[in-house]
Design a protein around this nucleic acid. Structure first.
Lengths: 225, 225
DNA sequence: AGCTTTTATTTGATTATTCTAAAAATAAAG
DNA sequence: CTTTATTTTTAGAATAATCAAATAAAAGCT
């Protein structure tokens, strides 16, 4: 079949629906949540969901939850693949800071050319993760999940390595930079404060830091064995 | 001043007007010509010219000729700069064929990020020409015009691009049309015949043609580096 | 100049995306 | 199981970009 060409807007909706339903499998992906994610109004989302339904990219009945179809999910994954490969290029090749790459990749991910991405991937030597530690889907749309946990769920005493973030906003990333926390940074959970859910973590140099629950909920780690 | 953000469409119009008025300084840049260039209808162009006039990117009165303003020209040049730098990247770094790069660059040229282009240019080691031999404008919008020479003065073996004519008579121009030689046509000097000063030139398709001295004295070319 | 051809603009309509305000449906609370 | 609150959809309208058909202006040709 001929490759379906979608508009920037349509692609952004697919990506938003995909990431929302990945992040919160517990909640249904609602019109409101999508609207908030892509900075638009719920009524606009309703219209677009109709359109995407006609194109068989989502299954959706009004007042019911939204779900990506196989095709829709595949397309979303390929957009994410492009986004992450471009991030590797921006960070690794052009030396952008890891907090600067997102906005540009947001634009580059919509360039239509399969060849371009294949060659870019080859040039970048088939990276497995983007600068935020997120895995890069393969050309055939397979996404291998790394064993990752949210920092807030980790037991006291565990040694960890930061492998990614859930919040990719510039504010958060810049704060991390300030704290000198990046992908690969090794930390340890010293104590969990029951009172407000904050944690005390320590670094290699034994410096300690108290981080809020909101903070620890947005840091992805893997346990160092 | 804050950077003016234009839509893809607006940028394409500016680029089209720029290249048309460069190519045919003799003719006015007409609505029809623009329409043909960007594959749209003259009526659509009229509307857009109005819009661009309001934004002070072109000067235009109906039924009169169009001209870019200083700002409009600057923006056009910066788009062309982006286009050509991306072409260098696609050809030189990702190893695309020189005939494959245009369509992708056509999309990439609209990515909005000054930093991106500055860093890309640095990564590419400040190339002066794109894969088609066209010069790359500098970051401050200066475009060095290609060095024009008369075809009769060119040494054997050189690859050239036709950039203009000295004789603008209808007879000559029609003859050129018949030979399928136009602005932009790429040729190569195969041999110079000492006897009568004629030359043998070859085309992309390897067809050869013997042209008289009178002919070659009226063709302007630039050497493709 | 006067007629014809070409070129350019206006008019009215269409598609995509978006919004506000109002209405309707669903979910939550008592 | 009503009433209230929340969520979602509808209705109506706006903007950007586009086109086809009708009209107007300019250019070309006797």
């Amino acid at each position: 079949m001929a490759p379906v060409i979608l508009s920037f807007t349509e692609e952004n909706y697919l990506k938003a629906i995909y990431t929302l339903s990945e992040k919160d499998k517990t909640f249904d992906t609602s019109t409101n949540r999508i609207a908030e994610k892509i900075n638009t109004k719920p009524s606009t989302v309703t219209d677009m969901l109709r359109k995407l339904t006609v194109k068989k990219l989502v299954t959706y009945e009004k007042y019911k939850k939204v779900q990506l179809t196989k095709t829709g999910e595949q397309m979303a994954i390929l957009i994410i693949r492009k986004h992450r490969l471009w991030e590797v290029f921006l960070h690794g090749t052009l030396k952008f800071g890891w907090d600067e790459v997102h906005d540009i990749a947001e634009q580059l991910e919509h360039i239509h050319s399969e060849q371009l991405i294949l060659r870019l991937e080859n040039f970048l030597k088939y990276p497995k993760y983007d600068p935020h530690g997120d895995p890069i889907p393969s050309a055939n749309g397979k996404l291998v999940q790394k064993q990752r946990s949210v920092l807030s769920e980790i037991d006291r005493g565990k040694s960890l390595q930061v492998v990614g973030v859930r919040d990719t906003s510039a504010v958060f990333l810049q704060y991390l930079k300030q704290l000198k926390i990046a992908i690969g940074t090794k930390i340890k959970v010293v104590e969990k404060i029951a009172y407000d859910g904050s944690l005390i973590i320590s670094f290699k140099d034994n410096n300690q830091l108290n981080v809020s629950r909101k903070f620890s909920e947005n840091i992805l780690v893997s346990v160092i064995s």
